[in-house]
Amino acid sequence: MPALPALHHPQPASLVRARPALVLPRRPARHGDHVHPPGGMDLGESVADAAIREVKEETGVTAAIIGLVGIYTDPGHVMAYDDGEVRQEFSVCFHARAVSGEPRQDNTETKAARWVDPADVPDLNIHPSMRRRINDAIAARPEPTIV
């Protein structure tokens, strides 16, 4: 199966809850300070499996998907990276619960990871597109956001 162009790769992400805090890793400055655990899908992997894998890799927390926060495909949100890669936002964001593990940095993509109380999220440095997804997850609407 041929790889899709980068422009169309979905980016799975999970907002993992426990106690009722969210696990949020800290990334390099280009992403803002805090993010939800995002990542890419590997060939042959489902979007849900990719989300679970990325949470484990970036935070040390094993998660279980329990619902859909939303699908985000804003054509106005285009990311251009220093290496020449250009992508349009295409994120599938899940609600997840923590099964085991405690947040920790991965020494590759994350500087740190911690449980964050939802009441503290407004004070964090978060990219606007990720903030929208995090706020949607905290709001726990009965229907997913699809944009």
Rank of each mutant, 00 (worst) to 15 (best):
H77Y: 14
H77E: 15
A63S: 15
G39P: 06
D82I: 05
G60K: 12
E85H: 06
A51H: 05
D74K: 13
G84Y: 10
V55E: 03
V61N: 03
D83V: 09
Y81F: 15
F90A: 07
S46M: 02
R53T: 06
G76I: 07
P28Y: 02
P37T: 07
S46A: 01
R26F: 00
G70I: 02
I65K: 03
H36G: 09
E58P: 08
D49Q: 09
G60H: 09
V78W: 10
Y72D: 14
R27D: 01
R30N: 02
P38I: 11
P38T: 12
E57S: 11
A48Y: 00
P75R: 12
E85D: 13
G67Q: 05
I66F: 00
R26A: 02
L68E: 12
Q88L: 04
G32F: 06
M41E: 07
L43T: 10
P28M: 04
A63I: 06
L68P: 03
Q88N: 07
H34Y: 14
V69I: 09
A29T: 02
L68S: 02
H77P: 00
L68N: 04
D82K: 15
L68D: 06
I52F: 00
L43S: 09
G70F: 05
V61K: 04
G70W: 02
S91H: 04
E58D: 12
G40P: 01
I71L: 11
M41Y: 00
D33N: 03
R53H: 03
A80L: 09
G84L: 10
Y72W: 12
E58Y: 06
V78T: 15
V47Y: 00
G40H: 08
A51D: 03
P28E: 11
P37Q: 03
H77V: 15
A29Q: 01
I52S: 04
M41V: 14
F90P: 00
E57K: 14
T73A: 14
P75G: 13
D42R: 13
G70K: 07
L68F: 07
Y72A: 11
